[in-house]
Design a protein around this nucleic acid. Structure first.
Lengths: 168, 168
DNA sequence: GCAATATACTAGGACATCCAAGGGTTTGGA
DNA sequence: TCCAAACCCTTGGATGTCCTAGTATATTGC
């Protein structure tokens, strides 16, 4: 976050790894570090685009997920599984979205253990607007070429499957 | 987070985007979401490997950075710039590392504003051991093929340069 | 030489994430 | 039928990140 560095710090780290006898894992280390940094940059852009809506990325993701659910409602546990975050993170996000009037909690009709998260009318509107802004301000100007996008989707998709994200 | 999902949630999201008229940005959206998720998986692996050392990734990165500095010491501001994190994050990390006896703060000899972070003997030892574990348990088994590693380094390197990380 | 500006670090607050624990609800086998 | 195991959500605690000041020290410029 400030001025650009004169040299790529990750490439430097890779050289350091090689110099200290870890040449065999220097490249994967650099790739992984680059993923961490890229995520950080992208997250900052996303949060910047969502700020006017009073949303964070975590809350937006939940809102978007609900807006794609046919009934506009989902059990907390389902949301946790689909977003692949800890249940307590969902609790946290729902608390804040509920306070903002974008969702409401309601009891599950047949399972007393389950709480449903339901989109309010305003929640649906905000989700739609935020999606439009995110698409035009972030996703449409990602900085990745079409071919790179395809490669990323394939490489990271394989990785995620192998990591146990999905069995597909 | 637990059992694998039957289907890739990101591919589902991509289909939802297309179905709702955002087909032109569905792919970048999917690629970016995949980066976010991949980062999450990798971070969990890394933190798992570092746990026995009482280190988090943030603290490890600082320790590793110091261990590569010739004198074993760096100004806070320099560390902040190289790690590309907010200065307050460095303050936080140093607070904890100092409490653990792995680094010490010392005044800069000529610039009264600057605080130097210096590796202790124990800090250097821990850094070396943690690096070995990280390399053998995480980086050497990243799950990325050699060719994929190269592609990631190139694609994400271009992205980071374009995002203003470095001018190289 | 002294005021204005820039730089370095820290304090306090808002959020997000995870883990560990706890209390309520269901389910399933003895 | 009934109780233990499984499941669902929430609370409390620890970390990390960033932002917005606020304090202290350096540098610049008039």
């Amino acid at each position: 976050m400030g001025t650009p560095l004169p040299r790529d710090p990750i490439a430097d780290a890779q050289r350091n790894w090689e110099r200290h006898g870890w040449g065999n894992v220097a490249a994967p280390m650099a790739a992984i570090t680059a993923i961490m940094r890229t995520q950080q940059i992208l997250l900052a852009r996303i949060e910047g685009a969502l700020k006017p809506f009073g949303l964070t990325f975590a809350r937006y993701e939940l809102l978007a997920l609900l807006s794609f659910a046919r009934s506009g409602a989902l059990p907390m546990s389902k949301a946790s599984a689909l977003l692949q975050v800890h249940p307590t993170s969902v609790t946290n996000a729902v608390d804040r979205l509920e306070k903002a009037g974008l969702v409401i909690r309601s009891p599950h009709p047949t399972d007393g253990r389950t709480t449903l998260i339901e989109l309010t009318t305003e929640g649906r509107t905000v989700a739609k607007r935020a999606t439009a802004v995110l698409n035009t301000e972030v996703f449409s100007q990602s900085g990745f070429a079409d071919g790179e996008v395809d490669q990323l989707i394939r490489i990271l998709g394989d990785f995620r499957r192998q990591a146990g994200d999905f069995s597909d």
